[in-house]
Design a protein around this nucleic acid. Structure first.
Lengths: 146, 146
DNA sequence: TTGGTAAATGAAAATATTTTTCAATTAGCA
DNA sequence: TGCTAATTGAAAAATATTTTCATTTACCAA
């Protein structure tokens, strides 16, 4: 049982949610990963944290955490499963290889100006963003040309 | 049977794909729509273009068209179905409302410089990108504050 | 124009994903 | 410590997507 930020737990409590070992397990798994995880992947890893945890509970917990804003739902490639990542700061930046599905994070990004412009134009209150570049990593470029 | 751009047909032929009435139907449906369409929606509309067309054929045709770059797979919200839109230019820009899941497209975006920088730094061959801003649309802001 | 042939189709079944239902269990308060 | 509403897991239902395979068809060559 690894550390979970107290802040998140407090947030659950404030909303009247109970802190069950299953929820702790899901939180731990997500907090420990630096990548998007599918419900199935979280289920698998969750077994180590809380043997016997059900897939249904994973789905329910993820939905709740997303609603609380603790994690983020991301609509990824891959025959259409919804992945999840934990929120860093409302920003998500990835380079994704179409060949091997490697995900590389990057931090440089200056979208502030665009964000403001869009906000003015559409009336949206923007709270976060996701920027993903899709392409081929060096390794997969070599494989393809071989 | 509406017009389909000759260019697309030529592209199919060049790759050795046959131009069946079913494929024409799918192309027509997609070309006629300005929004993302689910395979199911395309199936439904496709019946008007080619009665009896099978859902399987829709899936297969969409995959092929995506591979050709004629259309684009977009990973949308909504309990995880993969939608399709026709390609503008390898870019996808959305504003997504966390309240009502409305998706608004926008076109302004200048990521060329960042793309180059990342490509140099990581060796990725970048072929497209996805930029999503998450927030609340005007309507949902009003509802929330009411 | 007419075969021949590889590619494409549709139906049905298989697989995968997500949601619902419901009885049993449990976290957290009094 | 006991109560109670919230939570859980199993199974079934609802959705989505892919595979298999026999039949049909687009299109090239003659």
């Amino acid at each position: 049982m690894k550390l979970i930020e107290k802040e998140i737990i407090a947030k659950l409590r404030r909303r009247g949610y109970k802190l069950t070992p299953q929820r702790r397990a899901v939180l731990n798994v997500i907090a420990a990963s630096h990548e998007h995880l599918t419900p199935a992947a979280i289920y698998e890893r969750g077994q180590q944290e809380h043997p016997g945890i059900g897939l249904v509970t994973i789905y329910r917990t993820l939905e709740m955490l997303a609603e609380l804003g603790v994690i983020c739902k991301v609509n990824t490639e891959g025959s259409s499963r919804s992945y999840l990542i934990r929120r860093a700061s409302g920003h998500h930046h990835h380079l994704i290889c179409s060949g091997c599905n490697t995900v590389v994070d990057f931090t440089t990004c200056d979208l502030g100006e665009l964000e403001q412009k869009l906000s003015r134009k559409t009336g949206f209150k923007i709270e976060g963003h996701l920027l993903e570049f899709i392409g081929y990593c060096q390794k997969c470029q070599k494989v393809a040309s071989a």
